[in-house]
Design a binder for these strands. Structure first.
Length: 419
RNA sequence: GGAGGAUUCGCAUAGCGGCCGAGUGCGCACGCUUGGAAAGCGUGUAUAGGGCAACCUAUCGAGGGUUCAAAUCCCUCAUCCUCCGCCA
């Protein structure tokens, strides 16, 4: 949720931001009108209530005829208060509904445009040239006994898979390496709930434009999270954090669930796009003044991970039209996938500024008062996509796959062999 | 799943339907005292909204209701604790 005061004082900035996202800018003016009416209603209600409070006190001390007369007045006033209260509540809800529809105000540095208008910030490493015909991860997964998509489909439907043998071991190694690096960087490791209630899901902004990608268990009214960003952000819901403790950083390891509705034709082969996967996610609560710096740090930790996996990649500055509603800027890292002859997204880091914290009511307290914190998130490693990148980039002519040096201590070998 | 009990200011507690936004203790902050510290004494110690401001309004787990008036009465829900059943 954006700040109502900011909206009142800078409506043109918010309009421009909405335009940059290709979202409805008329909400801005609707919200402003609604807010004006809301404040009028608040004044009316509060004036009436103040009168009622005074009258009530008189009733308490009056007696006899005087009391009867006062009670008559109070009764009439009570009706008016009730009406004014209802009107106020209605306008407050209406205003909030409108303001909630506004996305976070874009960082002026974010490139303006649609999905394809991203800006490439840098390339790291060069795509490998093969002196044999490279196999894709599905084929390699089969040869190594690492990935079983056929049985996945048999048991759980499309976009499902088993990680077996080397595949399972590779996940453990990736997670262990990720958590070890996160610990070194000062993160608190967390294993969060993946089943969350509506306030947590709503507060993190996943019930808006992303709602159709979320699994909802109707009978119990709980949601399966699509990322541990949700339980990590909601961890401090309704709390006031001491300013001197910021930034507070968590590394959450969890399964992630995505319906992938509306992606029917996309990435049907392999494990690039699946309904369930495991991920280590970085999450940071920091001082708003520190958010841009913190965002850079998250990106650096993501790059460090890719570097350690010895995978060529590029970093993109995601265009305004492709940002989530909570993010004011987003950097994606795209790994080189040889058999697709393309860079594909493997990690993503977003600066949500105070947008998410305002919804979740997470604040910090310092000498100046109590204000919303900034929240940021970034993928340290999303397992299946990283497995794809490793298998494809480090494959040998015979189908075996070299293990990056950083992972060898966790696997006690330097190559995945054929089964 | 069944039966009881609880939920008040950072923590612990008090609280007859009007004098309770709320007392007390602890904690914390500032001041006094002291050679320094402790103790002692004094003062202060929530959040949000509206208003230029004085100030006003709201909040005693959440939401409804009764009443001129609700922390206090009624209903629903949530969470926690204890006991029973089931269980990885």
């Amino acid at each position: 949720m954006i700040d109502l005061k900011f909206l009142r004082e800078n409506p043109e900035v918010v309009r421009a931001s909405q335009r940059g996202r290709f979202e409805d800018e008329t909400i801005v003016d609707k919200a402003l009108v609604s807010d004006e009416n809301r404040r009028i209603a608040i004044n009316e209600f509060e004036a009436l209530r103040a009168e009622q409070n005074t009258l009530s006190k008189l009733v308490a001390s009056a007696k006899g005829d005087e009391k009867t007369a006062l009670l008559e007045n109070s009764k009439a006033l009570a009706m008016k208060v009730k009406e004014a209260d209802a009107k106020r509540t209605e306008l407050e809800d209406a205003t909030k509904n409108l303001v909630m529809q506004l996305s976070n105000v874009l960082d002026p540095a974010a490139p303006i445009g649609k999905e394809e208008d991203f800006v490439v910030l840098e390339h790291v490493g060069a795509p490998r040239t093969f002196d044999f015909v490279a196999r894709d991860h599905v084929e390699l997964g089969k040869l190594l006994g690492a990935i079983d998509t056929e049985r996945g489909a048999k048991v759980a439907g499309s976009r499902s898979y088993y990680l077996t043998g080397s595949g399972a071991m590779l996940e453990f190694a990736l997670v262990n390496y990720a958590i070890a690096s996160a610990l070194k960087a000062g993160f608190t490791p967390v294993i969060p709930p993946v089943l969350v209630n509506p306030p947590a899901m709503e507060g993190t902004g996943f019930l808006g434009q992303a709602a159709e990608n979320v699994y909802h268990l109707e009978k119990d009214d709980v949601y399966l999270v699509g990322t541990s960003e949700v339980p990590l952000a909601a961890f401090h819901m309704d709390e006031v954090l001491p300013a001197e403790k910021l930034p507070i950083r968590y590394a959450g390891y969890s399964s992630c669930f995505r319906r992938e509705a509306g992606t029917y034709g996309k990435d049907t082969r392999g494990i690039i796009r699946v309904h369930q996967f495991d991920k280590v996610e970085m999450f940071s609560f920091c001082h708003p003044d520190q958010a841009i710096e913190e965002h850079k740090r998250l990106l650096q930790w993501e790059k460090d991970f890719l570097n350690a996996m010895e995978i060529p990649y590029r970093v993109i500055d995601v265009a305004s039209g492709d940002l989530g509603s909570s993010a004011n800027r987003k950097f994606d890292i795209e790994a080189w996938i040889p058999t697709q002859n393309a860079y594909r997204e493997v990690t993503s880091t977003s600066n949500c500024t105070e947008f998410q914290a305002r919804r979740l009511n997470i604040r910090y307290k310092d000498a100046d008062g109590t204000k919303a914190v900034a929240t940021l998130n970034g993928t340290l490693v999303a397992i299946p996509r990283m497995i794809v990148a490793i298998l494809e980039n480090h494959q040998n002519a015979d189908g075996t796959v070299n293990i990056p040096a950083a992972l060898r201590p966790f696997l006690n070998k330097d190559r995945f062999e054929l089964v």
